[in-house]
Amino acid sequence: MPVVRVQTKDFDTDAIVSDLTQGRTDIGAIVTFTGLVRDLPEKTLQSMTLEHYPAMTEKALQEIVETAMQRWELFDVAVIHRVGELQPADRIVLVVTTSAHRKDAFQANEYIMDYLKTRAPFWKKETTDAGGHWVEARDSDDEALSRWD
């Protein structure tokens, strides 16, 4: 069963990977992607606040995961996304994919991240000395989707 969670608290990647792999001998590949809060080039980021649409978020993530599981040979998937106020270098998101083979695990992991970034209802707001401002969506994230068509 895939794990999808939206939470304010930090996550323990090792514990999540351990849950997905415990007692199994058929897994040949585990891919973990972790997204972090990156400081601004001027090192002025004080905090980053993630807002989301609670009623929709987990549903949207579930759908992305289900599509990935239909498309690739996966044993399991975990997606954890944090919301609320985060500091530079904090973990934001974790995607774990397990499979018999690395190609499926790698590709499904990237697919899930590409769709998460363009379809799941999260919004980032950066706070600096100058105040708060909402991060603008990037066209390159939309373009990244076209390779999965």
Partner: peptide, 12 residues
């Protein structure tokens, strides 16, 4: 129905 409007998403 529940209809939501929002700016392009920026999670991940």
């Amino acid at each position: 129905d529940e209809v939501a409007f929002f700016p392009p998403v920026t999670g991940g």
